[in-house]
Simulated scan of single mutants.
Amino acid sequence: MSDPAADEESTGDGPGVFSPGRLRAYRDLYGYTRVALGDRTGLPADTITAYEEGTATPPAAHLVTLAAALNVQPRDFTGPSGADNSWEYWGLICAAMPPMTADQIATVATVLRRIDKHRERPDDPPASERPRAA
């Protein structure tokens, strides 16, 4: 019988949605090609490609298999809906920091979104022109 919580995560109906960029970032972090990861997991390289390109969403069982091969938790492949799912973004996060919990990843994403929102306000003067607090 399948785990309903894991099924929710893989379909995007639960606390997180599958992030193709996170899968690729973790694969790259460990230096595996898609073929090598396929050999470690028993999944075809074409299937891994589809997951990384976002043209397919892995079922919970595949998330578990991929996580075990990459020494992470299945939830490490999921994030809040609307989060940046690009490989470049998650590659930087994964390479620069030790493995994070899902809550830590969500916090980092929230902070980065706030920074981006602040950059989008053209009325604000640049930081160098703002008065400094005493």
Rank of each mutant, 00 (worst) to 15 (best):
M1F: 05
S2R: 12
D3L: 10
A6D: 03
E8F: 00
S10Q: 09
S10G: 15
T11L: 15
G12V: 07
D13L: 02
P15M: 10
P15D: 14
G16Q: 01
F18V: 02
S19Y: 08
P20W: 05
G21I: 05
R27K: 06
R27C: 00
D28Y: 10
D28S: 13
D28R: 15
L29Q: 15
Y30I: 04
Y30H: 15
Y30S: 09
Y30K: 13
G31Q: 11
Y32D: 05
Y32G: 03
R34H: 12
R34G: 15
A36E: 07
G38A: 09
D39Q: 15
R40L: 14
R40Y: 07
L43T: 05
P44Y: 06
A45H: 07
D46R: 07
I48F: 01
A50Y: 07
E53A: 01
T57K: 06
T57D: 02
P58M: 03
P59H: 05
A60P: 03
H62C: 07
V64A: 15
L66G: 00
L66D: 02
A67Y: 08
L70W: 05
L70V: 05
L70Y: 05
L70R: 04
L70S: 08
V72L: 04
V72T: 12
Q73E: 15
R75H: 10
D76K: 00
D76A: 13
D76T: 07
F77P: 00
T78C: 11
P80Y: 06
P80D: 10
G82M: 06
A83V: 09
A83N: 04
N85T: 14
S86I: 05
S86D: 15
E88K: 09
E88I: 07
E88S: 09
Y89S: 09
W90V: 00
L92N: 14
C94L: 10
A95V: 12
M97F: 14
P98L: 11
A102F: 07
I105F: 09
T107Y: 08
L112M: 15
R113H: 13
R119V: 09
E120I: 05
E120V: 06
D124L: 12
R130L: 12
P131G: 06
A133K: 15
A134T: 10
